[in-house]
Nucleic acid binder design. Structure first.
Length: 376
RNA sequence: GUGGGUGUAGCUCAGUAGGUAGAGCACCAGGUUGUGGCCCUGGAAGUCGCGGGUUCAAGUCCCGUCACUCACC
């Protein structure tokens, strides 16, 4: 039985709309998942997240394992109870964070040795451990541990990383099956497991990775190792190449991307799921999204500006506050600045996705895309 | 009143043996792609308290003066 159903497709692009079933309800795709690394989308309460239209959030295995630790979260029957969020959660495997945040020790077949960015303590993250932690978190969608490499990377290194990722993916699947055996299915439903395609910027390696993972069979497929510093054309080229060779009846998730433009283009190429820190991190750094492009709320030109961030925007922030006030809060580093800015940006992203879904339902994605660029 | 100290960018201060000025913060503007509320990159900004003098050349040496400050009367 499949947990993903496609409900509409664009005739003129690769865009598609679907419904993803999870243990905590349905998710309409294409979907953007705000990043809630430490069991919170920074500065927002779950209620505010819902008011912004958030369907599903992302949590991080790496961070939550290090702090507060599974022993704490287990007492709340998982992350949902701990953070008071009863909609779906997807958890990252920790692979990317080990590669980007921790002081990476050695990667062996066994797993990734790393030192915590918090206290320097040493850890070993194996595929089994990653699955075990994600099960403990009670995640609805769990990700396989992968070996995410830097850009640029040699062909040899890229190939080794993708082969390791494949071996780890098999182990993750086995670990999940064993883990489900020990779950109390009367209180928690088993999660879905997604595989992650690697292969860097080499198309044949991407193809091999996609084939390997398809053979193992997962509930969904992610494309990892993009937006790691490569030129944007290459990012689109690799996404364009890889998306069609993944099983069409499964959700396709592009990890760690992107700007509003990236999302529109990647949806057009057939991607269903996204996560990215841009709307939240940039909100905390004063960059606010509008239909005409991003603005920097710290700019002096907003000092006396009585208008909202975006006229016509129906988010809480724009309904109530002026640019001048938001600039003041930001310049003064007031805590409310982070919250109000994040509300607007998340709302903006959620509306963007909603408009894309509607356009796909009506088979008008091309018109939508044209209008999107004309609005700038 | 007497003696000492300090006056350099909006703020806090560096400026070595005299060679027409720098940093941090703030300000202005960019960046930010499976998150350390960080960080990075540029930019604008000073008649060096004021007035004389010495010198080819003074923020720097000398004289005077003003302001602030500390100690003692």
């Amino acid at each position: 039985m499949s947990n993903f159903k496609i409900v509409a497709k664009s005739d003129t692009t690769g865009a598609r709309a679907g419904v993803l079933q999870t243990a905590h309800g349905e998710v309409e795709t294409p979907v953007f998942m705000p990043v809630g690394t430490l069991g919170t989308v920074k500065s927002l309460s779950p209620q505010e997240l819902m008011e912004c239209g958030t369907q599903i959030v992302l949590g991080n295995t790496y961070h939550l394992y290090l702090r507060p630790g599974c022993d704490v979260i287990r007492r709340f029957s998982g992350l949902h109870g701990f953070m008071c969020w009863d909609r779906p959660i997807l958890t990252d495997s920790g692979g990317f964070q080990v590669f980007s945040l921790a002081k990476l020790g050695k990667i062996t077949d066994q797993g990734a040795f790393f030192q915590s960015h918090i206290d320097g303590s040493s850890h070993l993250l194996t595929p089994e451990k990653s699955v075990e932690i994600q099960l403990c978190l009670g995640s609805d969608i769990i990700m396989c541990l992968d070996d995410c490499i830097k850009y640029p990377a040699s062909r040899k290194h890229t190939q080794e990383a993708l082969e390791l990722t494949t071996r780890w993916a098999k182990r993750c699947k086995n670990a999940l099956q064993e883990g489900i055996g020990s779950l109390d299915l009367t209180v928690s439903k088993p999660p879905s497991l997604f595989g992650i395609v690697q292969g860097g910027m080499f198309k044949d390696l991407r193809k091999r990775s996609a084939e390997n993972l398809s053979e193992i069979t997962f509930s969904g497929y992610a494309i990892g190792g993009l937006s790691v510093g490569e030129p944007k054309e290459i990012m689109f080229e690799i996404a364009d190449f890889t998306l069609p060779i993944l099983p069409d009846n499964k959700p396709k998730y592009i990890m760690g991307t992107g700007t509003p433009e990236d999302l529109v283009e990647l949806v057009a190429l057939g991607a269903d799921m996204f996560d990215c820190v841009i709307p939240t991190r940039n909100a905390r750094n004063g960059q606010m999204f509008t239909k005409k492009g991003a603005i920097n709320i710290c700019n002096a030109r907003f000092k006396y500006d009585t208008k909202p961030i975006e006229s016509g925007c129906t988010c809480y922030t724009c309904q109530n506050y002026s640019r001048a006030y938001l600039r003041h809060l930001y310049m003064a580093k007031e805590l409310l600045a982070y919250r109000l800015n994040t509300i607007h940006n998340i709302y903006f992203y959620m509306k963007l996705m909603e408009h894309m879904r509607t356009a796909i339902y009506q088979n008008k994605f091309d018109e939508f895309r044209k209008a999107f660029y004309e609005g700038k």
